[in-house]
Write a protein that binds this DNA or RNA. Structure first.
Lengths: 205, 186
DNA sequence: GCTTTAAAAAGTAACTT
DNA sequence: AAGTTACTTTTTAAAGC
């Protein structure tokens, strides 16, 4: 009986240690990403729910913690791409995506697709582009998305192309490479989305 | 207007069978030309047929999996070739081993562009999976028939998981009527 | 869970030319 | 910039790690 009691304590301690590790990892990654405290709190709640629903079995703690943070960023309306998230995690992008989809489905998070406009302020700020460019980029995204151009396209690539187009229209040109670097997409993707967008907008650049 | 059902095309049929006899894959690999066998990598021996085109995975237990065929008839034809090749190697093969179709992959075209964002909301976020950062298709799981559909912005779709060609037809009908009810088609 | 096989859809990426 | 190749998703059986 003493042994069983010790085992329970040991198990409880192990569980506590794992939870503490997961929460400290969420904190570390959140700091590295520079997201507000509210996001860490939402991520913690998602992680604890996943723990309660026994979704971590067969998966790494770090993988679930990273996925919870990715989901939290989206829930709070300040999404980070899987590429950005994977840079501060030791879990690879593909695994984060898989785990995220799994916990999202199991916890019924009902995540809406990411709106490309959510990336505009941060990307434009990193590129030191004006408020005017941001507004123009948002207008391009809104107008072209309404025409159905967004279906199936990556939100980061879509936002990057709109920002590139807006920078040209506002005479604050940034090169495709500069925009591609902050959005972490290729120039080819920007070129392809850009062509579709300016055509749908009836612009000739 | 073309009925989407008429655009259905079977792209791949997966079936399993067995010759009812254990095999020494090492010797089969030596005698069967074109056979790929690397037990360190995968326990099955891979044998490809040219006409009809398919790939057969042959196991030590004598069980066989056939993939890549474009119809259930092609599955039978491909496996007949595999059985005969094994017989040529003096391996006893039952007269006609039971062949079970395990999965049929189909493609189809709804004929109009789809707004996947609207469909994701319309069909209910809890029932679908749409993560364009990871894959451009919207994943829609149906209960009856029990298949998985991948819907694309172009209006093209893929139906997989079915065991009968009819499963894909029923799935396309249900998808079309649901999208029409939601006013998301056309 | 992974390994292998086939196939479609469309997007993205990494190469070479 | 174009072209090629390859990887993402889904499904399914098989035997073994």
């Amino acid at each position: 009986r003493l042994r069983k009691w010790q085992e329970r304590i040991r198990t409880k301690d192990a569980g506590e240690r794992n939870l503490q590790f997961a929460l400290s990892e969420i904190d570390r990654m959140a700091s590295a990403l520079g997201v507000p405290r509210s996001v860490r709190e939402v991520a913690s709640v998602i992680y604890r729910r996943a723990l309660k629903e026994d979704l971590i079995r067969g998966r790494s703690i770090e993988g679930v913690a990273t996925s919870a943070l990715y989901a939290a960023c989206r829930k709070e309306g300040i999404p980070r791409s899987l590429e950005e998230i994977s840079e501060v995690s030791r879990v690879e992008r593909k695994e984060i995506g898989r785990t995220y989809r799994y916990i999202s489905q199991e916890l019924g998070l009902e995540m809406k697709p990411v709106d490309p406009k959510k990336y505009v302020p941060r990307f434009c700020s990193e590129l030191k582009l004006s408020e005017e460019v941001q507004s123009k980029a948002n207008e391009i995204i809104e107008t072209t998305a309404e025409k159905g151009l967004l279906s199936g396209k990556s939100p980061t690539g879509y936002a990057a192309a709109a920002i590139y187009a807006a920078s040209l229209l506002c005479n604050e040109k940034k090169t495709q490479r500069e925009v591609a670097d902050v959005a972490q997409v290729t120039e080819v993707t920007i070129r392809n989305r850009y062509q579709e967008q300016i055509e749908a907008m009836g612009i000739h650049g | 207007m073309t009925d989407p059902k008429e655009t259905i095309n079977i792209e791949n049929v997966v079936a399993s069978t067995g010759i009812g006899q254990e095999l020494d894959l090492q010797s089969v690999a030596m005698d069967l030309e074109g056979a790929d066998y690397d037990p360190e990598q995968f326990p099955g021996l891979v044998y490809r047929t040219q006409e009809p085109k398919s790939a057969a995975l042959i196991f030590r237990s004598g069980k066989i999996v056939c993939t890549g065929a474009k119809s259930t008839d092609d599955v039978h034809e491909s496996l007949r070739i595999v059985f005969d090749k094994l017989r040529d190697l003096d391996i006893q093969v039952e007269e006609d081993p039971e062949i079970v179709v395990q999965n049929i992959v189909t493609s189809a075209d709804l004929g109009r562009q789809l707004n996947l964002n609207a469909i994701a909301i319309g069909l209910g976020l809890e029932n679908i999976e749409y993560e364009p950062e990871q894959f451009p298709g919207l994943v829609y799981r149906l209960d009856e028939p029990e298949v998985v559909a991948l819907l694309f912005g172009s209006g093209k779709l893929v139906i997989t998981g079915g065991k009968r060609p009819k499963d894909a037809e029923e799935a396309v009908d249900k998808i079309v009527s649901r999208l029409e009810d939601l006013g998301l088609l056309e």
